[in-house]
Structure formats: structure tokens, C-alpha cells
Nucleic acid binder design. Structure first.
Length: 639
RNA sequence: GCCUCGGUAACUCAGCGGUAGAGUGAUUGACUUGUAAUCAAUUAGUCGGGGGUUCAAGUCCCCCCCGAGGCUCCA
């Protein structure tokens, strides 16, 4: 007998050599029918997996998130079979499931897929699912597998994958008549019909191994669910995301616009957009002053020699806007770092004065590739909430702790509830000493450990000049955005010869970290717009109160009410246009203004207001003072 | 920069060889209204740019520019 420890700590005894499905059946028919795969000692396995030893055991049913990934992965295989049948020249490469849900498969094929091709693929996929055949696992030695892909399939991509593998045995999966089998670790759903709902979404180009110098592949995206209802929900979510598109809301709410007329990637921020950015800036200034930062301002353009010192002319010149005048070469700044280095260097600091924290909301310009531009998410002129911290080696960990705490405070205030930390370690090509990297990387880790924050490691993904922490923030519809970054920099201190005087009276190189929290303020604004679907909380709303008079006779009172709010630091306006009151209410509602105030005879008489708040609730006879207090409280609490 | 799909009025889009259209907006006038669109008039475009095919081209063909979705880049 084999003892399986279930998630609820109960022990399930089964006879040796039984499969996962048998074990599930032993618990109950319902569970067996609902099961997709299982976890044995935390490792994902098929239902066909034969259990030989005692282990921790967990059945994955359709309800679990991991099962959905298994399903999507299986869907990728089914699609690959469909593609290979329809296009015998296509060479499958890799096809994983993706976050938050969905899959893709990359094919090497001469001709890109058209919309008609995708329709045919969808049809073929549906056929394969309808056939309801089992996913079968087959083991093969590594050498045999390489031979298979060299001789039978003529697929150099799979051979390349196999040659990098360190195991001796690999597994294949097949379904249908078995003509198509694919190298895969598994696990998979037991049979093709478990894919109850699948949609082939779109195709695009992708490079093999994400390397622009390698072959260009055709990537087909799709998404699969256990039932059609979930698929519909997902499609609705995609539509919801489309509705939240900050470019559209930005135009509706008169926040900003981009257009190629005045330069692709150069957004014009309108008054209401700027009002939100101003709230962000105020918050930022306040928090940074509290945390002992010195706020500075640096120019937008420097002479070439600055960029030669920083190394930008050598390595980043393609991304910089050049300015030539009177035979001299200048560059518009793509980064704020040089300015901060030069400010640090204006005098000599003693070790007693460190850490020095220099911060700036600095607008930078980068010539991004045209294909990368997208609304405010990716632009060529944007403002970084930049700061550089100069410190002693032993201060590194404390400083990182402080920055992380500030990051947590920021994201909470702006209404996010979920974010993740990633540490990127030393890449292959890097500068700086081994000890420096070691100390910096462990300081990053220790800081997170000290704050009891979980993190993941991205091995070798650090920048050449130092290790870093990246923070991914999850928005209201589950999308992840990389926002904050804390990077240790071994490069610029050397290039700008940054020093402090130590206890020994000698010059020493401080540790320098570069960090942003918003990242780019314009991008952060766009994320806020999509996170809140335009319905910004009161403290961020560009217009917090609008006052609508019922007839022209109430204009004076409306003006007076509006002024009352303005005098209390509240962003208020009065709509005195010639439109009907109902029309103005509709406009204000669509502008997502938190408080819409109506004033007529009754209000003038009683010196009150009628307040319509979000959700279309109207409250009559409200005292102006009371609403002012309420809004003040909301602004203080970042609501 | 690469692949796919697009570009018609300020916005959303229809028209797909035969006289450039609709809704929204904007402007003006009338209406003075008690809680999500008052009525009317006016304004609308080198149909992304260039070249070609045709008696005739938003419409078919070629080149370029720009955008979207991906990929890449993110010193």
C-alpha cells in the first residue's frame, strides 16, 4: 500500500501501481470526473500517472487556477496539431500557457498566418476536440528524441531545446491518431474534449528565443476554458479592458492626446490631465521631503561631454534626441542620472553626512522605436519620479528597506491591493566587482526578508551595472504592470568619480542606488485611468465638484457655492452654459465627476445644496460645510 | 525595426468601380426648465501621401507615411 497525504492532512491509502485517477475515484466519483491533473509532492502530473511511493497528494479540479493552465497548455498542443495538419511546412517550436490566462504557440513557417488561416485553424481545433481522444504520454531517451526531431520531423528548434536539456529521459504527448506528437513535460488534461471552450485569438510575429538576430516565428494566440460561460466572461473582460483603454477615456475626459501631427509619442496633457499629475506630484513631494530627500531640478539638454562621461553617447545614442547648434553637439536628456551625479559632486561630503538622497520629477526624452509606442504607456517624452541615493556600504540594506516601505505606502494610497517583488541577479556581462554584486544582491534580499515580503528571483536578469528589485503591480482587472525599480549602480559612480571622505580621511566610492516608484508619471496616470476605468477616487479627480444651477436665476448662488469649495482647496466648477439642467447632469455624470450639485429656489432659500454622488444617489438639503468636510476627509484618506 | 490588420468630417463608423454619407460633437438661435440627451439651423472631409490601371478610383495594383495588436528594445 501507498500512503497519500491529502491537502486536509488526511491519509489516503491505495495499492501500489495505481494511477492518479484511481486514487481520485477512491475518494469519489464526482472528484474523479472533475479532476484534470494532480500534484504529487508539489509536482504537476497527469491523471494517468502511476503512483509508486508515499507522497503529498492533491487533485486539481477545474476550479483551480493551475488546472486552467494545464488546460491552456493542452489547448496549445491541440492547436499545434491543427496547424501542422493544415500547414505541413510549419515547424512547431514552443507553446506555453500564459498569464493570466491563455496560450500561444510559435511556428516556423514561410508565410505569416492570415485571418482566413486562423479561421481554418479554429475549425480544425474544434474538430480535434470533438473527436475526444486521449492525451497519451510517451517516454524517450534524450538521444532518441534528438534523432526523432532530426530524422523524422526535421525540426531544428526542438533539437536545440533538447540539446540544452540536462535530463536523460524526455516525454512526448500525443492525441488523436497519434500522428502528431510533441515534446512536452506535461501534464495534460486526460482527453481533448475537456477543452470545452477555445478561441483562437490572433497571430503576430515573434523571434525565436526572443532574439532579433534569430529566426522570425509566427505566434498564434488563443485562450481555453472548461466551459463556454467562462470563455464568454473572458471575452467580456477583454472588452472591458478595451472600454478602459486610457486613450479613449483620456479623450472622453479631456485629459490628454497623442498624435503624429506634432510628433509620435509626444503627448499633450490637457488641464484636467495635468490636474491629476499635479496631485501625484504633491503627494510625491510631500512623501519625499518627509523621507529626507533633497528635491532638485536639472536641465533638459546637456553638452555632448556630459553624455560622453556617462557613457550614453557610446551605448545609448540611438535613443537620444540630438541638438546641434553653432557647431556644438548637445543631447536632450534620456535620463536624470548625470544631473544628480553632478549635483552630488558640487561639494565634498563626509561619511558622516551620508546617506544623501537626491530626487527629481524629471522629464526625459527617449527616441523609442515607433512600433513600441502606445498611448501614454510608451511615449517618447515622459517624467520620471527619479531619485539617486548615495550611501555607505553598511547603510545599503536600511536604505532599501526605506524605499520599499515608501513603495508600499504609494501603491496603497493610489488604490492598489496587490504587488510583487522580483530580484534580478547578475547577468553574464556585467561591470563591478564580485564582492560589490554579492553585497548589493544580499542587501536587496535581506531588505525584503526584514519586511517579511515574499519575492521571486530572476536569475541573470539584472542590468549590467547592478542588481535590482522590480515591483509588479496588479490592477483591478488582473493585469500586471512593472512600476517601481530599485537598482544598485556600479557604473555611474565610477564614470562621474563620485566620492565621499571616510573616517580615514581618504576618498571612498559610495554605494549608489537609483530608484523610481511611479516609473513614468504619464504611464502611471494611464494605469490609474484603466485601473479605475476613469472613475478616479475623489482625491485624484481633476474636477471634484460641479455646480449646476436650475435656471439662470440661480447662477449667482451657483457661482458662490463653487467659490466656497474652491476656497477650501477643492477642485470645483460651476456649469453656467445655456444647456438644460438634465443635459448638464448627464455630461457631468459621463465626466465621472464625484459630486454633482444642483441649486434652485429651495437651495437658495435654505442656503443648502442638492448633492448627487456616484451611483446616482441624490441627497437634498445638504449643508455646504458638511460636503466640504466630507471631501477633505476623503482627500486626507486617499479615497 | 519585424509580422498581421487598419487609415473616409473633431469623434465613432457606413460606402468597396459610376454625383462623398449617418450619428455624436462644435457653433448660433429659440426655450428658463427640479435630477442621465429640448427643438431648430449652421459647420462639416485633397477619403493618410505619391504613382499606376480605367471613359471613370475611398473603391483595383505598386511604393511610402502613420496607427492598432503582438514581437523586439528598455544603457
Amino acid at each position: 500500500m501507498v500512503k497519500l497525504t491529502l491537502p486536509d492532512e488526511n491519509i489516503l491509502e491505495i495499492s501500489k501501481g495505481k494511477t492518479v485517477r484511481d486514487a481520485a475515484l477512491q475518494i469519489g466519483q464526482g472528484l474523479a470526473d472533475a479532476s484534470i491533473a494532480a500534484k504529487i509532492n508539489g509536482k504537476l502530473v497527469d491523471l494517468h500517472y502511476v503512483i509508486e511511493n508515499d507522497a503529498d497528494f492533491e487533485i486539481l479540479t477545474e476550479k483551480s487556477e493551475e488546472a486552467l493552465h494545464v488546460l491552456n497548455h493542452s489547448a496549445a498542443h491541440i492547436m499545434a496539431e491543427a496547424v501542422v495538419e493544415l500547414f505541413p511546412n510549419a515547424r512547431p517550436t514552443i507553446g506555453p500557457s500564459i498569464e493570466p490566462v491563455g496560450f500561444y504557440y510559435d511556428f516556423y513557417i514561410e508565410k505569416p498566418f492570415t485571418q482566413e488561416d486562423l479561421d481554418r485553424i479554429q475549425k480544425k481545433v474544434d474538430e480535434i476536440i470533438a473527436e475526444d481522444t486521449k492525451f497519451l504520454r510517451e517516454e524517450m531517451s534524450l538521444a532518441e528524441a534528438i534523432k526523432y526531431y532530426q530524422k523524422v520531423e526535421d525540426n531544428k528548434f526542438k533539437v536545440e531545446i533538447l540539446k540544452e536539456m540536462e535530463t536523460e529521459e524526455v516525454s512526448f504527448y500525443s492525441h488523436g491518431n497519434g500522428a502528431f506528437k510533441d515534446l512536452c513535460r506535461g501534464p495534460h488534461v486526460p482527453s481533448t474534449k475537456r477543452v470545452k471552450a477555445i478561441k483562437i485569438l490572433n497571430a503576430s510575429a515573434a523571434f525565436w528565443r526572443a532574439d532579433a538576430n534569430r529566426e522570425s516565428l509566427q505566434r498564434v494566440y488563443g485562450v481555453a476554458f472548461f466551459n463556454p460561460k467562462e470563455l464568454r466572461k473572458h471575452v467580456n473582460m477583454l472588452e472591458e479592458a478595451k472600454k478602459r483603454d486610457h486613450r479613449i477615456i483620456g479623450r472622453q475626459l479631456d485629459l490628454f492626446d497623442t498624435a503624429d501631427e506634432w510628433g509620435p509619442g509626444m503627448p499633450l496633457i490637457f488641464p484636467k490631465g495635468r490636474a491629476i499629475l499635479e496631485v501625484m506630484r504633491d503627494f510625491w513631494n510631500k512623501e519625499h521631503e518627509k523621507a529626507g530627500y533633497e528635491i532638485v531640478q536639472t536641465p533638459h539638454v546637456y553638452k555632448e561631454n556630459v553624455w560622453q562621461t556617462s557613457g550614453h553617447t557610446e551605448y545609448y545614442v540611438e535613443n537620444m534626441f540630438p541638438v546641434n547648434l553653432k557647431g556644438e553637439k548637445w543631447y536632450v536628456k534620456p535620463m536624470n542620472c548625470p544631473g544628480h551625479m553632478m549635483i552630488f559632486n558640487r561639494r565634498t561630503y563626509s561619511y558622516k553626512e551620508l546617506p544623501i538622497r537626491i530626487g527629481e520629477m524629471g522629464t526625459v526624452y527617449r527616441y523609442e522605436l515607433s512600433g513600441a509606442l502606445h498611448g501614454l504607456f510608451r511615449i517618447r517624452s515622459f517624467t520620471q519620479d527619479d531619485a539617486h541615493l548615495f550611501m555607505l556600504s553598511e547603510q545599503l540594506e536600511d536604505e532599501i528597506v526605506d524605499v520599499i516601505q515608501m513603495i508600499n505606502h504609494f501603491y496603497k494610497a493610489f488604490g492598489f491591493t496587490d504587488w510583487e517583488f522580483f530580484i534580478s541577479t547578475k547577468p553574464e556581462e556585467a561591470i563591478g566587482t564580485e564582492e560589490g554584486w554579492e553585497h548589493a544582491t544580499s542587501s536587496l534580499k535581506n531588505a525584503l526578508v526584514r519586511l517579511d515580503l515574499p519575492y521571486k528571483i530572476k536569475a541573470g536578469e539584472g542590468v549590467f551595472y547592478g542588481p535590482k528589485i522590480d515591483v509588479d503591480v496588479k490592477d483591478a482587472i488582473g493585469r500586471r504592470w512593472q512600476l517601481a525599480t530599485i537598482q544598485v549602480d556600479f557604473n555611474l559612480p565610477d564614470r562621474f568619480d563620485i566620492n565621499y571622505i571616510g573616517e580615514d580621511g581618504q576618498k571612498h566610492r559610495p554605494f549608489v542606488i537609483h530608484r523610481v516608484i511611479f516609473g513614468a508619471t504619464e504611464r502611471f496616470l494611464a494605469i490609474l485611468i484603466e485601473h479605475y476605468a476613469g472613475k478616479l477616487p475623489v482625491w485624484l479627480s481633476p474636477i471634484q465638484v460641479t455646480v449646476i444651477p436650475i435656471t439662470d436665476e440661480h447662477i449667482e448662488y451657483a457661482k458662490q457655492v463653487s467659490l466656497n469649495f474652491q476656497n477650501e482647496g477643492i477642485r470645483a466648477e460651476a456649469d453656467l452654459s445655456g444647456e438644460r439642467m438634465e443635459y448638464k447632469i448627464r455630461q457631468a455624470t459621463m465626466q465621472k465627476i464625484p459630486y454633482i450639485i444642483n441649486v434652485g429656489d429651495k437651495e437658495v432659500e435654505a442656503q443648502t445644496i442638492a448633492v448627487r454622488s456616484r451611483g446616482n444617489k441624490v441627497e437634498f438639503g445638504v449643508k455646504i460645510k458638511n460636503l466640504i468636510e466630507k471631501i477633505h476627509k476623503q482627500m486626507e484618506n486617499y479615497e
